[in-house]
């Protein structure tokens, strides 16, 4: 099967912050592919270029060199809403309620009112936000707010869903709940997802494939397929395969 996303030899360097300073190389020869309906995790330390890569894929930044193909076409030919990004920070608009936040993306993309309602309803159901439609997002706890961000992205029905450390800023309990929700979404209606994290457990639990990134400038050092059975739950964290992958990752990281 053809991969949905092909990233070939992508490099990115930021200009110096101060005149006379040195350039900051962030990405070096990034190379990987993502197959349809799989969840790929990019595991790497803070500031290793994960966000830069996702920003490039989402169309919020440009690569210096390399090729990126989405469905075998140059990624620029796919509108940004079809490769939408879920941020780690709070990006729900505080003047809109949950439903309007979710529908806004559809509204600006000229989806009819009827279809907007259906798609928002489905996203709300999938993320378990039923009953919160009329709440202003700032009245919700951070976990539910981040679920709204996920629902907003799902409603856009993207070719590839980009998630940039979406659970990093949540408390440990909310993080477990959202991980569980994402596993359930992947079980019921799998999507193509690229997910970054610096949490080893999260990378193994959620990922079908893990790409381990080096510190800046980021490049993939190791790729590990996660052969844990689906559907998964947090019980998988005691599975021998899980422990073996974790050990393998530690051996690489703690050299």
């Amino acid at each position: 099967m053809k991969p949905v996303l092909q990233v070939k030899d992508v490099c990115k360097t930021y200009p110096p912050e101060l005149p006379g300073g040195s350039e900051i190389p962030v990405l070096r020869q990034m190379d990987f592919t993502i197959s349809r309906n799989s969840l790929t995790t990019l595991l790497g330390p803070a500031a290793c270029g994960k966000s830069t890569l996702l920003n490039i894929l989402a169309g919020l930044d440009e690569a210096d060199s390399g090729t990126i193909l989405l469905n075998e076409m140059d990624i620029h030919s796919t509108p940004r809403s079809r490769r939408t990004l879920v941020f780690s920070s709070q990006t729900m608009l505080p003047w809109l309620d949950v439903r309007s936040n979710i529908e806004l993306g559809l509204r600006v993309n000229q989806v009819s009112a009827e279809n907007r309602r259906i798609r928002a309803e489905e996203a709300i159901y999938q993320t378990g936000l039923s009953g919160y439609e009329k709440h202003l997002t700032m009245d919700l706890p951070p976990g539910l707010r981040q679920l709204t961000a996920l629902a907003r992205a799902l409603a856009l029905e993207p070719e590839i869903l980009l998630m940039d450390e979406p659970f990093t800023n949540l408390d440990a309990q909310a993080r477990l709940v959202l991980q569980k929700r994402l596993l359930r979404i992947q079980k019921e209606k799998p999507r193509t997802i690229l997910f970054t994290t610096h949490d080893m457990d999260e990378a193994i639990l959620l990922g079908d494939t893990i790409h381990l990134l080096s510190p800046r400038p980021g490049t993939i050092t190791t790729s590990i397929p996660v052969e844990l059975p689906h559907p998964r739950s947090h019980h998988a964290m005691t599975h021998p395969t899980f422990i073996q992958i974790k050990k393998q990752l530690m051996d690489i990281l703690l050299v």
């Binding site: 169309g59 940004r80 079809r82 990004l85 806004l104 600006v108």
Partner: peptide
């Protein structure tokens, strides 16, 4: 971040102005 969120929802500059910046 609100502006970036607008962009990733597929908003053009005009729409970002109307749906994000002004409100």
């Amino acid at each position: 971040d609100y502006v970036r969120a607008g962009a990733t929802m597929g908003m053009a500059n005009k729409q970002i102005f109307r749906h994000i910046l002004l409100p």
